[in-house]
Computed example of a mutant assay.
Amino acid sequence: MGTLRILRVYEDPEPDEYRVLVDRLWPRGEKKDRVDVWLKEAGPSTEVRNAFGHQPEHFATFVKDYRAELKHNPAAGETRGLAGEHARVVLLYSAKDRHQNQAAVLLDFLNGVATEVG
């Protein structure tokens, strides 16, 4: 499996990185050519995303609920497959918080890391 990392969609990835957008919604103001593939199904459901609302006090519940969705989400396997096909993959997200966002949870999930929130 290639290397995986996360990056805000508004930042520039390395030239050799395969860019995978993992947001359900297209980020405002971004051009399609800045992304290699959009896996919107890899993002959390509308219900889970709205319940989180990017409020730090809701992050622990968000992690639990989103990881539960990822266990049955074919897009998680598709993301793993892309990491097997490309040496360097960057998971792009549009959230302002660099630590409490779905890409961080997805990265930990793909790497088999049990996310501790606390």
Rank of each mutant, 00 (worst) to 15 (best):
V48A: 12
F62R: 03
F52H: 02
V35M: 05
R28M: 06
V35N: 09
D65G: 00
S45C: 08
K40D: 06
V37K: 09
H58L: 04
K31V: 01
W38D: 06
F52L: 01
W26C: 06
T46G: 05
A60R: 15
R49Y: 05
A51E: 13
G29W: 10
W26P: 01
E47L: 07
L39P: 00
E41Q: 14
A51M: 00
L39I: 03
H58G: 00
L25E: 11
T46P: 01
S45L: 06
N50R: 14
W38C: 11
V63M: 05
R49L: 03
P56Y: 09
A51K: 10
E47T: 14
R24E: 07
E47M: 02
K64T: 13
E41C: 07
W38V: 06
R28W: 10
W38S: 13
K31Q: 13
D36G: 10
H58K: 14
F59A: 03
T61L: 12
G53S: 06
R24N: 08
E41Y: 02
P56C: 05
L39T: 06
V35H: 08
P44Q: 01
E47D: 15
A60G: 12
K31P: 09
D33H: 14
Q55R: 15
V63A: 02
R28L: 02
P44G: 11
T46I: 11
P27K: 04
R34I: 02
L39Y: 04
K40F: 01
R24W: 03
K64M: 02
K31E: 13
H58D: 01
P27C: 10
T61V: 11
R34G: 00
F62V: 04
P44I: 05
N50A: 12
V63Y: 07
F62L: 00
P56R: 15
L25T: 11
E41I: 04
D33K: 12
K40W: 07
R49T: 05
T61M: 06
A42S: 09
K64R: 15
D33I: 05
W38Q: 10
K40H: 14
L39C: 09
W38H: 15
K32C: 05
P56S: 13
H58Q: 14
F62W: 08
D33W: 05
W26E: 08
E47Q: 15
Q55K: 15
E47W: 00
E30H: 10
T61F: 01
T46H: 15
W38K: 13
H54Y: 09
T46N: 15
P44H: 09
H54Q: 12
T61W: 07
G43I: 08
D36Q: 08
K32V: 03
V37F: 08
R28F: 10
W38M: 07
